[in-house]
Amino acid sequence: MSATVFIDGAAGTTGLEIADRLAGRSEFSLVALDDASRKDPAARREALNAADFAILCLPDDAAREAVALVDPDSKVRLIDASSAHRVSDGWTYGFPELVGRDAVAGARFVANPGCYPTGFLALVAPLVRAGLLPADWTYTVNAVSGYSGGGKGLIARFEADPAIGWRGYALGFGHKHLPEMARYAGLPRPPVFTPAVIAAHRGMAVSVPLALSAMEAAPSPAAMRDALSEFYAGSPIIKVCDPPESGEILLRADAAPWDGLELFVLASPDGSEAQLLARLDNLGKGASGAAVQNLNLMAGLDETAGLQLTA
């Protein structure tokens, strides 16, 4: 018998992409509300509490309100794709490769990671854990994303003016992704984060530059690459890649949906400088693909079922 899944916020970009990944899968049966009911609290409460799983694809405040609609005796298990619960007590951080697949599989409340934190944490957290990178270093993060990650408002602004190629934001600092980046990397303070969106619908590159020559007992780039390769050995989703012979890593404006994550350790010839770089789809492993991976684990299925892992 298939498990029922209610996507609260199914009309948004993340919700639509989750539904696409679940379409045609016999393991799940989607619960849908019509346009008249999807904003009705009573109808949403009924759908939430009747489902086996609910995925919240909502703004933060609306996600908190949705959680409040869950009855104490409900069987429903939640995946929250917002940032509302990523550092909240009682919620499991939905990054199986970092927190453990068993932790996600056994959780009732799972908070999907943010798209930028997914790239940053995949690179930095294993190296801090291994003692190769210092926890007390002041890390910087330079990142670009396809404009689809900004929601309907940003999508509309970008598509209304095709002359815009790059849009920097969060210029006042204090981005909402910073708490999870610090906590799950084991850092005493968050990194300095510079995000931007580019003239591509999807895709993301997250870069962490490292002045290795300024670190005491600095690791070699080869040691970092080996540590990441060992940490993700056997992962069907995260791959540690060799530096490209072309000297370029690309994001394509016409990229298809992709749920993988590629990691690179790039270095200067003398090893005094390095750049950790992650390439992913902000709507894939950065959002909808991660939610489906977590759903698969919670349902006792192969974590890659329904995912697109060919770039």
Rank of each mutant, 00 (worst) to 15 (best):
A63I: 11
G15H: 00
P195C: 09
G24M: 12
Y232W: 08
R183E: 07
A68R: 14
S88T: 14
G106P: 01
L266T: 06
I79G: 10
G131I: 06
P72F: 06
L261H: 05
I7F: 06
L127R: 00
A43W: 06
L78R: 05
Y147D: 04
P72C: 06
A182V: 01
R167L: 15
L250W: 12
R157K: 13
A200H: 11
G106A: 03
D61P: 10
K152N: 11
E262S: 11
L154F: 13
A51P: 02
R183V: 13
L187P: 11
S246K: 08
A223D: 11
L263F: 06
P257S: 13
R157M: 14
C241P: 01
G90S: 05
G9T: 12
K285I: 14
L250S: 13
S235H: 09
D35R: 03
R167H: 14
G186C: 03
R25V: 10
G114Q: 08
E248G: 10
P126Y: 02
D226N: 10
D226P: 00
L263H: 04
I18L: 11
L154A: 11
V265R: 07
L98Q: 07
V124Q: 01
D281W: 12
A23W: 00
D71K: 09
A107Q: 02
E248W: 14
M215V: 10
A54K: 03
T4Q: 08
P72S: 03
L48H: 04
G146I: 11
P209I: 10
P126F: 01
V67T: 09
A54P: 11
M298L: 04
A105V: 05
L212P: 12
R64V: 11
V87W: 00
I79Y: 09
C241W: 01
S220N: 08
N294H: 04
V192N: 10
G149W: 00
A267C: 07
I238L: 04
D35L: 03
A196P: 06
L58A: 04
A290C: 13
P41R: 13
S246F: 09
I249T: 03
A103E: 05
V31S: 02
V110C: 01
A163M: 06
E97L: 01
S37C: 05
L30E: 12
A62K: 13
E27I: 08
G90P: 08
K176H: 01
W91R: 06
A256S: 15
P236D: 07
M1V: 15
M224V: 08
S29R: 15
G131Q: 02
R279Y: 03
E180F: 00
S145P: 06
V292D: 02
A217Q: 12
D52G: 07
R279L: 14
R77I: 04
P113Q: 00
G146A: 10
L297S: 01
C115L: 06
A50W: 00
L16F: 00
A311V: 07
G271S: 10
F53G: 03
E65V: 10
H175F: 09
A3G: 01
A185Q: 05
G119N: 01
A54T: 03
G114S: 04
T13S: 14
S229A: 15
L251F: 12
G119Q: 01
K239W: 08
L280F: 09
D35I: 02
D102N: 08
W91E: 02
A50L: 05
L178K: 01
L309N: 05
S272D: 15
A255C: 08
